[in-house]
């Protein structure tokens, strides 16, 4: 088995077999449950249109997934360093590129698990309504690059700074800023600054696509520019992780 596959397997196992990994999954599931329960406990929210709720759930899944990805990414190199396992890892017959690939694949597996965990929630809030299948498809297509991108950004910062706290905090600030469209209404985002941020923000790209396809039933052809945006985001962050992982911070 390739070293990168072995590392990926270890990372995947850490999420399912490790108490800390399970705690992350519990937190992720807790966020989705809290949102779902809010829908049935609040009259105004329960009256929202079905498509609107599915859109909000897709946005919440993406935000919660990115949050866990940031935690995992920040732990990738700096966590190994802080636990004293980074040097033995790098002295083993594993190249930095293979180490990064293993960590990156581990993150993909973690997101796959989170995506599968989100499906019952999407079904619970969206069954019987419109565009549930579209929501599931577009969450995979747009949520994956956004979530993995945040994970790779945290990974890049983790390798560069060598500190879990520092890389996590920086990544969380970027995530909080990017995910602000979830909190700010579309009306406020119609300003010049709002539109400019929307044009370059991958999170906005994913959210606007969810809005467009789930609520407005817009076709795929209208989403190509946003798809390019999230793929560029994924490429840039992965490239950044690849460059910094060549010389991770040991100090």
């Amino acid at each position: 088995m390739k070293p990168s596959s072995l590392i990926a397997q270890k990372e995947r196992g850490a999420l399912l077999q490790n108490q800390r990994g399970l705690a992350w999954l519990l937190a992720y599931s807790g966020i989705l449950s809290a949102f779902a329960l809010l829908l049935i406990s609040n009259k105004e929210l329960s009256l929202l249109d079905n498509a609107q709720i599915v859109y909000m759930m897709a946005g919440t899944v993406t935000a919660a997934g990115a949050l866990i990805a940031v935690i995992m990414g920040a732990d990738a190199f700096a966590g190994e360093r802080e636990r004293g396992t980074l040097v033995p890892l790098l002295t083993a017959p594993v190249s930095p590129a293979q180490l990064l690939m293993g960590k990156a694949l581990g993150l993909v597996s973690a997101w796959l698990l989170m995506y599968l965990l989100a499906l019952p929630y999407l079904w619970a809030v969206g069954a019987g309504g419109q565009n549930l299948l579209q929501a599931i498809f577009y969450l995979a297509l747009f949520g994956t690059p956004v979530v993995l991108g945040f994970g790779y950004l945290a990974m890049a910062l983790s390798a560069r700074s060598g500190s879990v706290l520092s890389s996590m905090l920086t990544s969380l600030i970027v995530l909080l800023f990017s995910a602000s469209p979830l909190l700010i209404g579309p009306g406020l985002r119609n300003s010049v600054i709002g539109k400019a941020i929307d044009a370059v923000n991958p999170f906005s790209g994913a959210l606007n696509t969810f809005d467009s396809v789930i609520i407005d039933s817009a076709p795929f052809s209208g989403q190509l520019a946003r798809l390019a945006l999230v793929l560029i985001w994924l490429s840039i962050t992965f490239l950044a992780a690849r460059v910094t992982a060549r010389h991770p911070n040991f100090r």
């Binding site: 399970l22 519990l26 779902a36 329960l37 329960s46 009256l47 709720i53």
Partner: peptide, 29 residues
């Protein structure tokens, strides 16, 4: 008005999944 969110669908998922993961954590411990 059309009630669009059905508690009979949401409650089993929203309570069941965290309980399942919590149970898994307890089992492993």
């Amino acid at each position: 008005q059309k009630p669009v969110v059905e508690s009979r669908r949401i409650l089993p998922v929203a309570l069941g999944l965290p309980l399942f993961i919590g149970g898994l954590m307890g089992y492993r411990r």
